[in-house]
């Protein structure tokens, strides 16, 4: 059976990609943030996962309001990145995966999830920035990626509890997949931030710390928040916590945290990074 070997949380903001494009990793503004990644890169280099399931949200590259999925899952052999309109460099195509992807889709439908199933989508910075962070120099093409896209833009959005349940269903699907491949799961985005409105710029570092603590010890406590509450506490885009919850759901049992970093502000956000392993 396929095995989930670990979970990683990370910011996915465009500013990170732009900083990497420009080689700013060691500048005063960025060095504490990028210092969070070498331990994760080392772990990935040792473990060599075959497949990464990446929970992200599309920010208006592929999923427009004309036909906007609540949950979308990729089943494509590869995924292109493209111009998002404001200057982040595009990255080379991401290698996809079809067998486990379809198995997950079968299991999701069997268990009363209603995903939109994608055989040809472009992926945006929500997915590409984390890949670039984990594999500098874009050395990620050996790994197969399954994108899982969660609506974090237009209300109503899937509830934190539903996102966690989605992760659990995906985790169980991986466990029932007849293969000896190693799977890593990424929860991307967050943490507290708000881009829009007169309240733009709010960061709640205390809440971000609570999120990182509870994600390890008691994720179900986090699922009791409503999205409206997350907006109030963590800012309008603080709902990106939902991708972290979906990732954590995949891990099913108890986990331990082997690495953490948190820096705020990074651009307009609280930027958290964690490496979690199953107990």
């Amino acid at each position: 059976m396929a095995k989930i070997i670990g979970g990683i949380t990370t910011s996915h903001i465009p500013a990170i990609g732009i900083a990497m494009d420009r080689g700013l990793e060691d500048t005063p503004y960025w060095k504490d943030f990028f210092a969070g990644y070498p331990p994760i890169r080392e772990w990935l280099g040792e473990q060599k996962p075959d497949i990464a399931i990446v929970f992200y949200n599309d920010h208006g590259l592929e999923m427009f309001l004309d036909k906007k999925p609540t949950f979308a899952i990729g089943c494509a052999p590869s995924y292109d990145n493209a111009d998002e309109g404001w200057g982040i460099a595009t990255i080379p195509p991401v290698t996809g995966e079809t067998e486990l992807s379809w198995h997950i889709v079968n299991e999701l439908i069997e268990h009363d999830f209603d995903p939109t199933v994608c055989q040809d989508i472009k992926v945006d910075h929500g997915l590409t920035v984390p890949l670039s962070l984990m594999y500098p120099g874009h050395n990620y093409q050996h790994m197969k990626v399954i994108p899982v896209c969660i609506n974090c833009e237009r209300h109503p959005m899937p509830k934190p509890s539903r996102c966690y349940a989605l992760g659990q269903a995906i985790g169980k699907a991986v466990e029932s997949f007849d293969s000896d491949q190693k799977v890593v799961v990424f929860g991307t985005g967050g943490l507290s931030h708000q881009l829009d409105g007169e309240r733009a710029g709010i960061i709640n570092a205390d809440f971000d710390e609570e999120c990182m603590n509870k994600l390890v010890s008691d994720p179900e406590a986090l699922t009791r928040y409503s999205n409206d509450e997350l907006v109030e506490i963590a800012g309008a885009q603080g709902v990106e916590l939902n991708m972290w919850l979906a990732m954590r759901g995949c891990m099913l049992g108890k986990v331990r945290e082997v690495h953490r970093n948190y820096v705020a502000p990074i651009s307009n956000t609280g930027a958290g990074t964690q490496l979690l392993l199953n107990e």
């Binding site: 503004y29 820096v263 502000p265 609280g270």
Partner: peptide, 8 residues
């Protein structure tokens, strides 16, 4: 933003 920050 900085006034709310942590780290760095």
């Amino acid at each position: 933003l900085d006034s709310q920050g942590r780290g760095k």
